[in-house]
Amino acid sequence: MIITCPHCQTKYQVTYEAIGSAGRKVQCAYCQRAWQQEPVVPEAPPAPADEMFDAMAEDGLDEALVTEERAVAAELARRLAIEQEQARPETQKSAGEVDPAVIRKRQKAFLRRQSALIAHLPLARLRRAARVAGVLILCVLIGALYFGRVQLVERVPSLAGLYAGLGLGVNVVGLDFSNVTAQRALRDGKEMLIVSAQIVGLTADPVGVPPVVVTLLGPNGAAIYEWSVTPSVRDLMAGERSSFDTQLALPPGEAERMRLSFAAAAPQPGRAASPPSRSVPISSADQTNPEHP
């Protein structure tokens, strides 16, 4: 006789004696589901060829079902392996064929996650705060060294050379020269060197004006002749100016330039002894006033 699984419609050929007249519970080897099989009455008497099934007992049916179950399980395992192989990406089918771009992408993602975790640690926040504080302190220090360089050089005169090397001249005297001229001229048949300039105040507080030193320089820049002039004004403050003139009879003929500087013999209290200076070439009267002989 033939029985059919009501769940998956799989058919099995068994003997009538295996089911019996009262029926029995059987399990499908394909879908693994059980059902109560009722006895099936044969429509015709069994043929002689069916006598070979007369001796098949219930144990034989169980063995046939187990064998069928194993075959179905093997087929299912084979189909599952094929589906998994088809679903796996081409870049991961074998360890030797992994795409390097996939590895780099995973490494970058891992590093990003690791950095994000580390950034939230207390020690990382402390390091960031220390770096920010260090940058702010450095900016304040640079600003103080730049804008307060005059006060620093006043207290530490040796820093004047450091600032000069950086191209930041420091005028600690509080005075400067402007409109400086040096001109050769003839007066009463004598050659004269006429020097004129203005002294300018730079500070808000009055600054005492020291003597002005006039130095004549040769072709190689060496000093040839020098004298001092005492200005008529005693002190100057920001915005104030004082003019002065001086003359030298029969100046050295090899003098090419003239330099003005403040005397360092008696510097102001707390100020450095390196005064500012101005150097100009010595011109002739016929160059500035062509109408004069």
Rank of each mutant, 00 (worst) to 15 (best):
A129C: 08
Q107F: 14
V209W: 01
E85D: 10
T91R: 05
L159D: 05
G161F: 01
K108N: 09
L123C: 13
P267R: 00
L186W: 02
A64C: 11
E191V: 11
K93V: 11
A47E: 11
L152T: 15
L202S: 06
D176G: 12
Y12W: 03
E43T: 09
C5P: 00
L111D: 14
L117I: 06
N171E: 04
L236K: 06
E291W: 04
P46S: 15
R241F: 09
A185D: 07
A129V: 01
A264S: 11
V229T: 14
Q183W: 00
G165T: 02
A124Q: 08
E291M: 09
S242Y: 02
L136K: 06
V40P: 01
G208C: 04
L111N: 14
Q92S: 09
F244E: 13
A44Y: 03
L145G: 09
G239K: 01
G253E: 07
L260E: 00
Q151K: 11
A29W: 04
E226D: 08
A238S: 03
L141E: 14
D205A: 14
A223H: 02
T91M: 05
Y16R: 15
L260D: 00
F110E: 14
A263E: 05
Y163T: 03
R187K: 10
M1H: 10
R149K: 06
T15M: 08
V212R: 03
P290T: 10
V41N: 06
A197C: 12
A47T: 05
Q183C: 11
R104S: 15
P251N: 13
V212K: 02
L216Y: 02
V132G: 09
M1F: 09
R278W: 05
R106C: 15
L250T: 11
F177T: 03
Q151V: 14
A264G: 12
P281A: 15
A204W: 00
A249W: 13
P281C: 13
I224W: 02
Q198N: 04
G96D: 06
P210C: 08
A74N: 03
A18F: 01
F147D: 13
E38M: 13
G218F: 02
R78H: 07
V212Q: 02
R88E: 10
A81Q: 05
L186T: 05
T181K: 06
R131Q: 07
E68T: 15
L138I: 12
